[in-house]
């Protein structure tokens, strides 16, 4: 009998994504679903999709989901998690959602050390509303609301979420990854697994920032978008683990038990 080597994750519904070709959301969704399957937490996980291109995530993930208003995901997730501490709760957010309108909710959920996981899709633009400037837009990057390029005098600087959140005492695991090559996709999956495992073990707030192509609003081909992440975006937003306190948090927890 032939061995099945590839299939649809159980945590994804039988349907097509609405995402544009070459969009990082599709890859991120699949990876999250694979990780949920592999950790055996499909039945206990509750996801919180954002307002943003991923607003319809509940049509794709075959898990319980509660839609959040724009930026409020981490507050909504806090409510779920505090009410049901033994469930696995994640919030899925874009850069406008997390770093502009929802900065307060995200920052304070992280600072409280909520035992949740935030999946942060950084595509340097507001995808859903048509490619406007995001807090993460690069200096000089042209968008529909920065037609002459992002001007640091008028628009400020790209917000570095992983760097900032790793400084908060409440966070346990913070990593920035990307999905622009097979190797980086594998790395992202590992980061997601680590983040969810951190939550399963009750070790506190985890955030995975994914540099994610948006060919449509970057006005590039999919291949050029992947290249742009390597050549431009990851220079401003370096990849890597910004914080890994898992071992340190685990020790006192083990000593106490």
């Amino acid at each position: 009998m032939a061995k099945k080597v590839f299939g649809r994750p159980e945590s994804l519904k039988e349907t097509y994504f609405h995402y544009c070709p070459g969009c990082g959301h599709s890859i991120a969704h699949r990876l999250v679903a694979e990780v949920i399957d592999e950790l055996g937490i499909r039945g206990t996980t509750i996801g919180v999709p954002p307002a943003g291109c991923a607003v319809l995530a509940y049509n794709y993930f075959d898990i319980d989901m509660l839609e959040a208003q724009h930026g409020r995901g981490p507050a909504t997730a806090t409510g779920i998690k505090r009410a049901l501490p033994d469930r696995i709760v994640f919030s899925y957010q874009g850069d406008g959602d997390l770093a502009a309108i929802g900065m307060a909710e995200s920052f304070h959920a992280a600072n409280r050390g909520e035992n949740i996981t935030v999946i942060f899709i950084n595509n340097a633009v507001y995808g859903m509303t048509g490619g406007q400037m995001a807090p993460t837009t690069m200096l000089d990057q042209r968008t529909t609301t920065s037609p002459a390029g992002r001007n640091k005098i008028l628009d400020g600087y790209p917000v570095k979420v992983s760097e900032i959140f790793s400084q908060l005492q409440g966070t346990t695991y913070v990593e920035r990854v990307t999905v622009n090559s097979p190797a980086s996709v594998n790395k992202t999956k590992k980061a997601l697994k680590k983040a969810f495992q951190c939550q399963i073990d009750g070790l506190g707030f985890s955030l995975v920032e994914i540099l994610s192509p948006c060919p449509t609003n970057w006005k590039m081909t999919s291949v050029a978008s992947c290249k742009w992440i390597d050549e431009v975006m990851s220079k401003e937003f370096p990849l890597g683990v910004f914080k890994d306190n898992i071992a340190a948090v685990k020790k006192p927890a083990e000593a106490a038990s």
Partner: peptide, 12 residues
């Protein structure tokens, strides 16, 4: 944040 927290908890 408070209202969105109670939304999350209410859903549970």
């Amino acid at each position: 944040a408070a209202i969105h927290m109670i939304i999350g908890a209410s859903a549970t």
